[in-house]
Amino acid sequence: MKSLSIGALALARAISTVTRRLKPALRKATLLAFFFLHPLQAAPPQTDFTQNLGQQLPDLTFTNSTGTQVSLLSLTEKRPALLVLGYYRCPMLCGVVMKSLVRSLQDIRMSVGTDFDVIFVSIDPRESPSLAAEKKKSYVTYYGRRSSAAGFHLLTGNPDAIQQLADTTGFGFVPTDDGKEFAHPSGVLVLTPGGTISRYFLGIEYPPTDLRLALVEASDGTIGSPADHLLLLCCNYDPLTGRYGLAINRLIKAGCGLTFGALALFVIRSLHRERRKS
């Protein structure tokens, strides 16, 4: 899904206000209808995602939800991470992205804070750690797993650090005419331990299976079940769609290998029987 243009952002905010009193299912359907059908949904190029796969994040300093300055790379030292850029006062899009992400993570056996981390960086330098703390509490509560709070990192920063991170990740954003809001793309980045960009998931829907495979792949096999590692052998990541699909070539090679192995085993057993008879 493409990002919102500045002109559509005001209308999106109005729709969000009207739909707050609707039932959750109806509210989500209304928001999705706006995103996919609104004629102004195509955003200017400067608010799109540029996928910088394999790019190393710079060692930038941000402020966490307790008001403590932290190194961004220090948050990715031990395990892979999911990175989201947005802002806490976003009238609609950022909240949709985070709720959709956390909802998908609920369906993954691996846990935030144990197997991977979730990092949200505000692109608005005017936002405060107290606002980040408020949002963190709501996401941790929504996620619903004990001891996950240590894995949610909601950060704020200065303009230079924000812009440098946006440039590195290919996150294009521009302020609206009144300067109160931002037009920006929606998506989630997967980081390897050490802070290298491994995968992009664009849009507002993140299938749990794809997220799980991306985290297992980013961890270089240090997390995930044997079934996950086997499934990765049969799947390829498509950067254009941000999805994992069956790798036909790998399946054909695997099938040929199994067929050859079975044939070789049959010949060996046949020869062994003939020798025993003789």
Results as ranks from 00 to 15, higher is better:
residue 42 A to T: 14
residue 140 V to M: 05
residue 269 R to T: 12
residue 212 R to I: 00
residue 237 Y to H: 10
residue 30 T to P: 00
residue 247 A to S: 15
residue 51 Q to A: 12
residue 84 V to H: 06
residue 84 V to A: 05
residue 205 E to Y: 10
residue 95 G to P: 01
residue 114 T to L: 10
residue 267 V to D: 05
residue 46 Q to W: 03
residue 105 L to M: 14
residue 87 Y to D: 03
residue 219 S to Q: 06
residue 60 L to S: 06
residue 186 S to I: 03
residue 263 L to K: 07
residue 37 L to A: 13
residue 193 P to C: 00
residue 210 D to Q: 01
residue 142 Y to G: 07
residue 81 A to V: 07
residue 261 G to N: 00
residue 133 A to E: 13
residue 184 H to R: 10
residue 8 A to N: 06
residue 263 L to C: 08
residue 166 A to N: 07
residue 109 R to D: 14
residue 79 R to T: 08
residue 52 N to Q: 15
residue 254 A to F: 10
residue 59 D to E: 11
residue 46 Q to H: 12
residue 98 M to N: 13
residue 218 A to I: 03
residue 9 L to K: 11
residue 89 R to H: 13
residue 231 L to W: 07
residue 204 I to M: 13
residue 139 Y to T: 00
residue 100 S to D: 13
residue 202 L to Q: 14
residue 60 L to E: 05
residue 142 Y to M: 15
residue 141 T to F: 09
residue 194 G to H: 04
residue 179 G to E: 14
residue 87 Y to H: 05
residue 224 G to C: 07
residue 69 Q to A: 05
residue 225 S to D: 10
residue 193 P to F: 02
residue 108 I to A: 09
residue 160 D to T: 13
residue 245 G to Y: 11
residue 158 N to G: 11
residue 227 A to D: 15
residue 251 L to E: 03
residue 152 F to I: 11
residue 46 Q to I: 05
residue 34 F to M: 09
residue 236 N to G: 11
residue 182 F to S: 10
residue 249 N to R: 11
residue 141 T to G: 14
residue 154 L to R: 05
residue 70 V to T: 08
residue 175 P to H: 05
residue 168 T to W: 11
residue 185 P to M: 06
residue 15 I to S: 05
residue 138 S to R: 15
residue 167 D to Y: 09
residue 62 F to D: 00
residue 39 P to I: 09
residue 142 Y to C: 03
residue 187 G to F: 04
residue 121 V to A: 08
residue 124 D to S: 06
residue 249 N to E: 06
